[in-house]
């Protein structure tokens, strides 16, 4: 087979294959298939976990919170001293108890007097 023969044969074969009309329906469906395939390019790709915004924000927030806690409770222990009310309460409670006992004693005395009288 010479090159010219082969070329002629191939040209004829190409024309024969190209001559077939697939029809409007197939052409339309192929167009739709192409559009559907190309539409994938408009959809943002799923990001990997390490690419998501919260993946960066979360550790930064956690570190900031740790620094805050560290500063508040460890580096700065000078909290204002709380007043000690314990002794005053005890004193008040003791006074109250004495008064109560006195009242009870007075009430008993009165009762005795009434009984005697």
């Amino acid at each position: 087979m010479t090159t010219t023969d082969e070329e002629r044969f191939l040209n004829r074969a190409r024309k024969a294959l190209e001559s077939e009309d697939l029809g409007e329906d197939i052409s339309q469906r192929l167009y739709s298939a192409r559009r559907k395939a190309l539409d994938q390019l408009d959809i943002p790709e799923k990001r990997a976990v390490y690419e998501k915004p919260w993946f960066t924000v979360f550790p930064v927030g956690a570190i900031a919170a740790l620094v805050l806690v560290f500063n508040l409770f460890w580096l700065d222990p000078e909290f204002p001293e709380m007043p000690n009310y314990e002794s005053e309460l005890h004193a008040a409670a003791a006074t109250e108890l004495e008064l109560l006992e006195d009242l009870e004693f007075v009430a008993w005395m009165l009762a005795e007097d009434l009984n005697a009288g």
Binding site: L17, E20, L22, I26, S27, R29, L30, A33, R34, K36, A37, Q40
Partner: peptide, 27 residues
């Protein structure tokens, strides 16, 4: 796309399957 469809059709001889093949290939 048309040549691809024709190639698929040559082999599978079924319009729906040939269309699926071409669509999957494009996707």
């Amino acid at each position: 796309e048309k040549r691809a469809f024709a190639m698929a059709m040559f082999k599978v001889k079924d319009t729906e399957e040939a269309m699926d093949i071409v669509q999957d290939t494009m996707m």
